[in-house]
Amino acid sequence: MAVSRRHAVRGYRWWAVALVVTGVLVALATLAVASLTLFVARTVVIPPKRRADDTRVISFDPDAATVTLSRSLDALLPGEYSLWFTGGAGHARVGDIVGETGVSVTRTVITVDFGDLTTARRGRLSGWFYLEPGEFGHPFTDVEIETELGPAPAWLVPAAQPSGRWVIQVHGRAVSREETLRAIPVFRDAGYSSLLISYRNDQNAPASPDGRYGLGDTEWHDVDAALQYAVDHGATDVVLMGWSMGGATVLQAATRSDLAGVVRGIALDSPVVDWITALRYQGELRNLPNPIRSAVLVLIGQGWARRLTGQLSPIDLPRLNFVRRAGELQLPILLMHSDDDGFVPSTASHALAEVRPDIVTYEAFTVAAHTKLWNYDRRRWNTAIARWLDSAVD
């Protein structure tokens, strides 16, 4: 009897230990999931301080004007691109692929604008190609847009002849107005003045009170200020052009600004038409389980989570869904997106084009990747804009 009782006590102790250990493991797992969810949510709304050099610079041959890079999807994209290297201390422009191996890609070097490419070890490829508007040989002015947060710098490239037609260019997330320089020539040829703006939380623009992105739900106020500047300086017919998150931003401005009556059309390059679709896709790229992807949307979209994410206000994700809000859109839209975007899926863009074929002109690219449509096929990109301006806007 005593032996059985001892066995029972020992068995009870083992069960108790097992329950405690299991509880601890469950608690740790729950904490890990919660921490990962919060980390991803904060990554979405916190502006990054720098871009990672994700490409290895293997060698540079100045005599042959070629650079050899580690093999990647970006390195294998046809076209012409910027190569930032040594943490942004250097910049070159690269062109055609002239060779490749299983681990490397060799491309022509068009120019080395600054920095020492011979000593570079790491860099990153970018769709930016131009560094400032003076490269086109047209007059331009550095101006300031008076936003509700303070002055934000912009470039103004006037039309060749006096005109009330303006285009306001709005760059994407975590980049700057240099991204939009590629569009100056085609709009100037069509008689437009180009206003290339910065917005809150850009490196050289005012920070928002919380220092967080609104994914277009707050940034549109700065586009509204740019519209006011354009109108004050003679604009009568404005096209809003948005790149990536800039697409979500100009769609908000076109439907929420008191000055929307002056807008005649919307041009979109690789846009975020629906943030829920885009964020779920990016979660898949990170191999995040579906519950974590859903929880991230809750954290950035609910008021109770503001203390966790640092947001002043939650992001109204349904309001940023223009597939659902397609009926509210009345302006002609040029929508250009690559089915191989790799960052913002083209599914929502296709959906918007399907539900509003009366106003959407859709240019479906392949291979071109995210906001690199101009780089991949400059002639097609320029032609699509020129034809749309001529047929749908003018």
Score class of each variant (00 low, 15 high):
residue 331 L to F: 06
residue 308 L to T: 04
residue 314 P to G: 07
residue 334 L to Y: 14
residue 364 A to G: 12
residue 290 N to E: 12
residue 348 A to G: 10
residue 182 R to Q: 14
residue 191 G to R: 05
residue 240 L to I: 01
residue 176 S to N: 15
residue 133 P to L: 09
residue 216 G to V: 00
residue 305 A to H: 08
residue 91 H to T: 04
residue 285 L to D: 14
residue 89 A to F: 01
residue 255 T to A: 02
residue 136 F to K: 08
residue 133 P to N: 12
residue 363 E to K: 00
residue 356 R to Q: 11
residue 126 S to W: 05
residue 136 F to A: 09
residue 285 L to I: 02
residue 122 R to Y: 12
residue 150 G to A: 06
residue 346 S to K: 08
residue 271 P to D: 01
residue 119 T to V: 09
residue 131 L to I: 02
residue 332 P to H: 12
residue 250 V to N: 08
residue 316 D to W: 04
residue 297 L to Q: 11
residue 197 I to R: 01
residue 294 S to A: 05
residue 387 R to F: 11
residue 90 G to M: 03
residue 355 V to C: 11
residue 16 A to N: 11
residue 282 Q to I: 03
residue 320 L to T: 09
residue 12 Y to N: 05
residue 361 T to W: 04
residue 32 A to F: 14
residue 190 A to L: 02
residue 107 R to D: 14
residue 193 S to T: 07
residue 193 S to Y: 01
residue 225 A to K: 02
residue 295 A to E: 13
residue 191 G to P: 08
residue 265 G to E: 05
residue 26 V to K: 06
residue 233 H to Y: 08
residue 215 L to H: 08
residue 166 W to N: 05
residue 131 L to R: 13
residue 245 M to C: 10
residue 214 G to K: 09
residue 42 R to D: 13
residue 50 R to L: 13
residue 297 L to W: 03
residue 129 F to S: 07
residue 24 V to A: 15
residue 120 A to R: 10
residue 131 L to W: 09
residue 187 F to V: 03
residue 327 G to V: 05
residue 318 P to I: 00
residue 344 V to M: 08
residue 27 A to H: 13
residue 376 Y to T: 04
residue 367 V to D: 15
residue 85 F to C: 03
residue 321 N to E: 12
residue 82 S to E: 12
residue 298 V to A: 13
residue 95 G to E: 10
residue 1 M to R: 05
residue 232 D to F: 03
residue 230 A to W: 02
residue 141 T to I: 03
residue 189 D to F: 02
residue 118 T to D: 15
residue 36 L to F: 10
residue 334 L to H: 05
residue 206 P to I: 00
residue 306 R to D: 15
residue 322 F to Q: 13
residue 28 L to T: 14
residue 221 H to R: 08
residue 160 A to C: 06
residue 296 V to C: 10
residue 171 H to D: 09
residue 28 L to C: 15
residue 120 A to C: 14
residue 9 V to R: 11
residue 201 N to Q: 08
residue 292 I to L: 15
residue 2 A to M: 05
residue 68 T to S: 12
residue 50 R to I: 05
residue 173 R to D: 15
residue 107 R to I: 03
residue 324 R to G: 11
residue 30 T to L: 14
residue 77 L to V: 03
residue 355 V to M: 13
residue 178 E to G: 11
residue 228 Q to T: 08
residue 384 A to Y: 11
residue 65 A to Y: 07
residue 14 W to Q: 08
residue 374 W to L: 06
residue 218 T to Y: 02
residue 257 S to K: 00
residue 245 M to P: 10
residue 177 R to G: 14
residue 194 S to F: 02
residue 95 G to S: 10
residue 87 G to M: 05
residue 302 Q to I: 00
residue 104 S to Y: 01
residue 168 I to F: 10
residue 179 E to Q: 13
residue 71 R to W: 07
residue 161 Q to L: 04
residue 160 A to I: 04
residue 23 G to A: 01
residue 157 V to F: 12
residue 284 E to K: 07
residue 226 A to Q: 10
residue 34 A to S: 09
residue 341 D to S: 09
residue 200 R to C: 07
residue 336 M to A: 05
